[in-house]
Design a binder for these strands. Structure first.
Length: 651
DNA sequence: CTGGGGAAGGGGCCC
DNA sequence: AGGGCCCCTTCCCCA
């Protein structure tokens, strides 16, 4: 798996402000290699293949941060001989910018297979658009036809292209008129990215000024501002080349004196910590900045997405008409912006209809997209998601979390979990839901209706679940039992709260300086290096809390007491990949990243001598005065976060 | 502080 | 594809 050291050796880019969908960044800069002069020792992780026509022309290596400006949250688009990046969707403030790349590349990056049955969803990156380009088209449009490519240097499994110039998109998308300058030369900076103050203004959405600005210096330099939430970065002289205008020669069209205020540097990119989301189904792609390809014989119908899913196969949006129609008003930051072609050719319904996978494809399991047989011709006839067979039944696998579904519709609903799409909105309170049934259930809140009645006490409930819970009061059933004291509960949450009474008093490894104790020696070591103020660590309540969580995690529990630093590191990594128990649930992934960084530093940095000594003494003293936790006590901790089942808890 | 009950939301399966 | 239903989880409030 990806090592922490790698994680923290790479610079990440975060948005400081909302970036509208369709914003373009670029061009990519980096070390240029021809096919023949690639150094033997070159790390090809960040290689970009640049095509001329269908021929591989050269590579751009984005690895060297001193020489490149690559970013990884966007879809890349080869434009002539340059690479630009387009935002796939609006980028929220503080969201990291990442570039999509394929599952194959992800696997190579992570160095292991993802199909081991674990939920390695966070590892799974998705979707790369890789397109070829004909030389004659270069001549036609002056080299402005975009083709996209991925960050790997293996032979592409597919190629496709957009025949529509980005100019067309830009014009229609933003509503400005083409300028001669833009016609003749691509602007090697991003377009239409309003500042905070400009965001809601019409002019910001029609950044014609960008078009009329002189092209910026291709060599540019940006010193990012360090956010107050990441004070540890203040000591570093972080900079990112290229994207935002020259330090001495301001060139950024909108921000002539300063880097774009919505961009700033944050902790390093970590594909495990901040996994790129897959191309969101439905609601995002129709508003994609990418020009809709003109029809060709071997291409999907107009309106189909040319994004490639896993294994380089096309990723078709899964949107439904309802989703398309309802998405935008409910998500002001994800404005639905009908593509000009949609407006011209019938709008949403046609678009949605055209977005369906090729008819018949789901019913042809022999066209498994996992195999080469799935690709007949240029490869547009495959499904957007992997298929597999389990016990003779077709399974539809989520590209993001690898969960499989027996029915396609279930997968489609499931994908909303990842896309954030919530197509069903309550008219009264404007809350939105992923499923109609949830909205219908929610409506009962407003109507006061309680359709489910307890036959014993005639109390009424809005849901069967709540009635069922209630019925336990009459039946005396208490399925949730504390293993330590035997107390039984009717609800799991009550057991969960109760069990905390037992923990906290049985953690043998106490910090001699503060009132914290841990189950594991390595946790105490982490604490002392990462968050013990008495040891000179910065006060960080979050890191402190996370060390505690990790200490109580299954991953930590599985480690031997004398676990090596690398073992602890790997366990923390697994823990994070699993969602870190509550961290992800609270939507605070960046904070979790901060923890991992702290963990990494704590693991890798040589410990303060005093800390080690006192820590060892404390551990020894603690061990002496308080025996090792019993398996039972440890189990209670492990199960603290474990998904409960009636069976196990009742045993 | 702890146990207990209900309200509400979210994910997934089956039809 | 969509409706119905179930299970699970969390939050809130109260005794």
């Amino acid at each position: 798996s990806l090592s922490l050291s790698l994680w923290f050796s790479v610079t990440g880019v975060f948005s400081k402000e909302y970036i509208p969908q369709g914003t373009r960044f670029g061009p990519l800069q980096g070390v240029v290699y021809t096919k023949d002069n690639v150094p033997k020792m070159a790390d090809r992780k960040y290689f970009w293949r640049i095509y001329r026509g269908r021929q591989l022309h050269h590579f751009v290596d984005g690895e060297d941060v001193q020489k490149s400006n690559w970013i990884r949250n966007l879809v890349a688009c080869q434009n002539g001989q340059e690479v630009f990046f387009y935002t796939m969707r609006p980028v929220e403030p503080s969201q990291e910018l990442l570039v999509w790349y394929s599952a194959e590349f992800s696997q190579r990056l992570c160095g292991h297979q993802q199909h081991d049955g674990h939920r390695h969803s966070e590892y799974r990156t998705n979707t790369l658009v890789e397109m070829g380009q004909r030389t004659d088209e270069l001549a036609i449009d002056g080299g402005r036809n975009p083709t996209t490519s991925c960050g790997w240097d293996t032979e592409p499994t597919h190629s496709c292209r957009w025949n529509t110039e980005p100019r067309s998109y830009d014009i229609e998308r933003w509503g400005f008129k083409p300028s001669n300058h833009y016609n003749t030369r691509p602007i090697p900076l991003f377009i239409g990215c309003p500042s905070q103050t400009q965001r809601n203004t019409e002019t910001s959405r029609h950044p014609s000024s960008a078009l009329n600005s002189p092209p910026p210096s291709p060599r540019s330099f940006y010193h990012g501002r360090i956010p107050s939430t990441h004070p540890h970065l203040l000591q570093r002289d972080l900079h990112l080349h290229g994207l935002y205008g020259h330090k001495e020669v301001p060139s950024y069209p909108f921000y002539p004196q300063h880097p774009p205020p919505h961009m700033q540097l944050l902790p390093p990119f970590n594909p495990l910590r901040f996994p790129p989301m897959p191309p969101p189904p439905g609601i995002f792609l129709p508003a994609s900045p990418y020009p809709t390809p003109l029809p060709r014989r071997d291409a999907p119908p107009r309106g189909s997405s040319y994004l490639l899913g896993n294994n380089g196969l096309p990723y078709f949006p899964l949107g439904q008409p309802g989703a398309l129609a309802m998405a935008s008003p409910h998500h002001p930051h994800q404005p639905y912006l009908p593509h000009p072609h949609l407006a011209l050719h019938g709008g949403l319904k046609e678009r949605a209809a055209n977005m369906s996978p090729p008819s018949g494809a789901p019913a042809t399991p022999e066209l498994s997209p996992r195999g080469p047989a799935a690709r007949s011709g240029p490869g547009y006839k495959a499904l957007p998601y992997p298929l597999s067979k389990q016990n003779g039944k077709i399974k539809y696998e989520c590209n993001v979390c690898l969960k499989t579904f027996g029915q396609l519709s279930n997968l489609k609903v499931h994908l909303r979990v990842h896309s954030g799409e919530r197509p069903f909105q309550c008219d009264l309170c404007k809350k939105s839901f992923t499923q109609l049934a949830h909205l219908q259930k929610h409506n009962l809140v407003h109507t006061g209706e309680k359709p489910h009645e307890c036959q014993v006490c005639h109390k009424r409930f809005s849901s069967t679940s709540n009635l069922k819970t209630h019925l336990r009061l009459h039946s005396g059933e208490k399925p949730f039992q504390c293993k330590l004291c035997g107390t039984k509960f009717t609800q799991y949450i009550h057991l969960k709260l109760h069990r905390r009474l037992h923990t906290g008093h049985q953690r043998p490894y106490r910090c001699p300086h503060c009132a914290v104790a841990y189950f594991h020696r390595f946790s105490l070591r982490l604490h002392q290096r990462a968050c013990c103020q008495a040891q000179g660590s910065p006060a960080n309540a979050f890191v402190r809390d996370m060390v505690e969580r990790f200490d109580a995690s299954q991953e930590a529990e599985a480690l031997p007491e004398g676990a090596s630093a690398s073992q602890v590191e790997e366990a923390a990594e697994r823990w994070m990949a699993r969602g870190s128990e509550g961290v992800e649930g609270k939507g605070d992934r960046k904070e979790a990243g901060v923890l991992l960084e702290a963990l990494s530093q704590a693991i890798n940095a040589p410990p303060p001598r005093a800390a080690l000594q006192s820590g060892a003494a404390a551990a020894a003293a603690a061990t002496h005065h308080s025996p090792q936790p019993t398996n039972q006590a440890r189990a209670s901790v492990v199960h603290l976060y474990k998904r409960p089942t009636v069976k196990t808890e009742a045993q």
